[in-house]
């Protein structure tokens, strides 16, 4: 029997991106989600994608500061995975109706909607960064994503000093912002 405290500890670990906590959650729940997907017309690759997406939903939730799920991790992941999978099936017309079991599911509609919106935004960012081309892409990734020191970046990219690298970085950032906001405003107009 897993106590609430134990699960809360795991969720805290997850929020901090702790490797060990993620491994435990993964190990405890992946197989049952995989069974759910495979029994409903999915492959094991689908299972991996859906499970990881559900973990991201959970990650975003605990990072927003609430470690109280009001249900077990297992129930939460199951509900999210099921919703995500049914959605995917209905999109690809492979929909297979399955009996809802209200006792073992938990309402997650809002969270999934928020997740989809975030996903779209991240997608936009990814495309915008990819659209920059080299060396802008690597330069910005090194500074803003990997949080490397400007001196280190200057040395590894071959700039003579950190100021030149910084100047180049701002030029790249300006371009990135323009691409991103063009997509972003477009995205909002479409909705």
């Amino acid at each position: 029997m897993k106590s609430e405290l134990y699960e809360e500890g795991l969720l805290k670990g997850l929020a901090e991106g702790d490797k060990r906590a993620i491994e435990i959650i993964y190990k405890d729940h992946f197989n049952s989600i995989q069974a759910l997907i495979i029994n409903n017309n999915g492959s094991s690759d689908d299972a991996k994608d859906i499970f990881q997406e559900a973990l991201i939903v959970l990650y975003e939730k605990v990072r927003s500061g609430s470690f109280e799920l009001n249900c077990q991790i297992k129930t939460y992941l199951y509900s999210v995975s099921k919703r995500l999978w049914l959605k995917k099936l209905s999109v690809s017309n492979r929909f297979v109706s399955s009996a809802e079991d209200p006792a073992s599911t938990y309402p997650v509609e809002d969270e999934i909607e928020a997740h989809e919106k975030r996903d779209a935004e991240f997608d936009m960012m990814e495309k915008a960064i990819a659209g920059l081309g080299e060396p802008c892409k690597s330069l910005l990734e090194a500074y803003y994503l990997k949080k490397q020191n400007m001196q280190v970046i200057a040395a590894s990219f071959g700039y003579t000093n950190a100021d030149n690298a910084k100047n180049q970085k701002y030029k790249c950032l300006l371009r990135l912002k323009k691409i991103f906001f063009a997509h972003y405003k477009n995205g909002i107009d479409h909705e």
Binding site: G17, I22, N31, Q34, S43, S44, L55, F122, K147
Partner: peptide, 27 residues
């Protein structure tokens, strides 16, 4: 975005690691 990307990579890594050790069933 950076944190999200890092987390995704971590998940991918965890998956192959666990599958390799036989803790989860993998295709």
């Amino acid at each position: 975005f950076g944190e999200w990307k890092k987390f995704r990579q971590l998940l991918q890594f965890t998956h192959t690691d666990l599958a390799e050790k036989g803790h989860i069933q993998s295709s």
